[in-house]
Amino acid sequence: MTAPQSSKFPAREGRDPLTPRPVTVKRGVNPHAPGSAHLIMGRTEILATVTLEEKPAPHMRGKKEGWLTAEYSMLPRATTDRQARERNLQNGRRYEIQRLLGRALRAGMDLRFFRNQTLYVDCDVLVADGGTRVASILAGHAALHDFCDRLIQKGQLTDWPIARNVGAISVGLLGDEVRVDLDYQEDKAARADLNVVATDAGLIVEVQGGAEEGALTHEEYVRLLSTGTAAVQDVMREITRQLAVIQGL
């Protein structure tokens, strides 16, 4: 049953406060990339691709592991108003998001399989309606799944290199109500919000965010964190189910 909506805050378009937006993911959408995925979460859309470079990152030379790095960009009309292409800007937000994506996706990979190599995960926002960084983590995971599956299918790997399934979700407080997977209007109205990165087993990888107005109590923060972790598990179950369908191979 859908929870009643407060007139003070944005409506949820038929979903209750603890239900994420519908998510769909399709693998193998880019014929030129060895791994790719198109993810739609509500009205937010992400295209993620994986590229393998046959040389180590400078700081990984001589190490037993390879490296994974991520890049994030938003197309000019991903938002309601045209934004200049981010490649032409010194954009601190973009670099912050890229570092988050890299840390999150590395947490899921056993990079010993890619010694002296570098994985690049490019996440491009096609349409933005809130939650682009968490949706990019989900799309990046799906693209890596596609990439690794292709290596297995081709006999280039015999063991599965994804050590754990890592996903993410946003969670916020609108008044005293906890909501998961905030869209843009909810994000603007929230008095606190977190981006929770966790595994499908409920282990926390990273938490980013905080209060927008005043301060949070310890109990409020714990409630946000536990709700977000549970929501990540729900979303990852659905994404894992969809990734089991082999597309484009």
Rank of each mutant, 00 (worst) to 15 (best):
R103T: 02
P10C: 14
L151P: 01
A78F: 02
A201H: 11
R106Q: 07
L203S: 14
T227M: 06
C148K: 04
Y221A: 15
Q90M: 12
M109F: 04
F147A: 01
V222G: 02
V222P: 00
N88G: 14
A84P: 10
E220R: 02
P22W: 08
T79F: 06
D122W: 04
A135K: 05
I162V: 11
H141T: 12
A78W: 03
L157G: 08
R103L: 06
G102L: 00
D110Q: 09
T44A: 06
M60V: 07
T158N: 05
G172H: 10
I239Q: 00
G130V: 00
P10L: 13
D193E: 11
I152S: 12
G130L: 03
R179F: 00
G35W: 09
I239M: 03
D159I: 10
V205T: 08
Q83R: 15
G167E: 05
V222A: 13
S6G: 14
E54K: 15
L203T: 14
D110R: 06
D122C: 07
P31F: 13
R77S: 10
A57R: 11
V29T: 15
E54W: 01
E54N: 14
Q156G: 00
M74Y: 03
V196F: 05
V127C: 09
M1W: 14
L194D: 06
R94L: 04
R12W: 11
K63H: 07
V207H: 05
T51F: 05
Q242I: 09
H32C: 11
L144A: 13
G102N: 00
Q117M: 11
A3H: 14
T44I: 02
V197P: 00
L119C: 05
D234G: 04
A78Y: 03
M60L: 07
